[in-house]
Computed example of a mutant assay.
Amino acid sequence: MATDQIDGVSHDLVLLLTSEDRDFLVRNNGDQVKVESLKGKKIWLYFSASWCGPCRQFTPKLVEVYDEFSSKGDFEIIFVSRDKGDQLFNEYFSKMPWLAIPFSDSDKRDHLKKLFKVRGIPSLAMLDESGKVLSSDGVQIIKEYGVEGHPFTAEKIKELKEKEETAKKEQSLRSILVSQSRDYVISADGRKVSFTGAALYPNILDTVDLTSMSLNLVFIVSS
């Protein structure tokens, strides 16, 4: 996992992704794509490996996001392999629809790992169109928000986090136990029982904040 110490740092895309004798990235079919053609796009650097279980679980989630938005042409993912051999790299990369640093360029792959302070994988660094690192915790962002995080700008992520916090604060006992179409609970023997608390203490249910206290709920049904 990368650390947040790199967030906010800007990079020149060409210098970041090319090397002295290479100015291209590769697709899993062998096609080469010039790094220059990626200017003006958001770039995500995906550090992953075939031997990593969490990586294999996360990659399909990332593919889902990529498939949803890649046609817009505003971002690209670049695989930075941590595999130990080119055969393992090729097998794993064959499942990815995006670009990669050629496996043969181990110096660049190692350099990116150090530059982005990657100490564990999977790791996803999100850069904006100018090369500025928006987040070094892209894996968690994708896990939490998936496609809802688009366009994955700092403003959008902030908005989603604020909505999440607001929802937690506004959560009440009423919102958990009753709905517009149901104001009862089910007893142990399967009977519908009117939610007494809602009838006797409606104001209490609307003000209980479950994020700050723990409640034990007991429903007593008279025989």
Rank of each mutant, 00 (worst) to 15 (best):
S104L: 08
K143R: 14
R119W: 15
D105C: 03
L99Q: 02
D86S: 14
E129N: 11
S70Q: 11
I78L: 06
V133S: 01
V178F: 07
F75C: 10
G149I: 13
N90Q: 12
Y184A: 15
V147D: 05
Y184R: 05
L127Y: 12
S106Y: 09
S135P: 02
E159K: 04
K114M: 13
P122V: 05
F152D: 07
D107H: 11
G85E: 07
I142L: 05
G131D: 01
D137S: 14
G73H: 10
G146D: 06
L115D: 09
I101F: 14
V133A: 07
V185H: 02
E148P: 05
K117H: 15
L124T: 09
F89H: 12
L88C: 12
Q87P: 02
F75I: 02
D105F: 05
L173F: 00
F103S: 03
D86C: 05
S135M: 04
A154P: 02
I157K: 03
H111Q: 15
K72H: 01
T166D: 03
L134E: 05
F89T: 11
T166V: 02
S71L: 10
V80W: 02
I78F: 09
S71V: 12
E144Q: 11
P122D: 04
K72S: 06
F75M: 06
P151D: 10
K161F: 02
I186P: 07
M96Q: 09
E164D: 13
E148Y: 08
P102L: 13
D107N: 08
Y145I: 04
L99D: 04
D128I: 10
P151Q: 07
F103Q: 00
R82G: 12
K132T: 12
G131L: 07
E159T: 05
F93V: 07
E165T: 05
I186L: 15
K72V: 06
L173W: 00
D137A: 10
P102Y: 06
P122S: 01
K132Q: 00
S187N: 14
H111I: 14
Y92L: 05
D107E: 14
L134D: 11
D83K: 04
H150M: 12
I78W: 05
K161Q: 09
D110E: 15
S130C: 04
E162S: 07
S179F: 03
F152Q: 03
K168I: 11
K158V: 04
D110I: 15
T153I: 06
E162L: 04
D86F: 14
V139G: 08
A125S: 09
K117L: 15
S106R: 11
P122T: 03
K156M: 08
L173V: 00
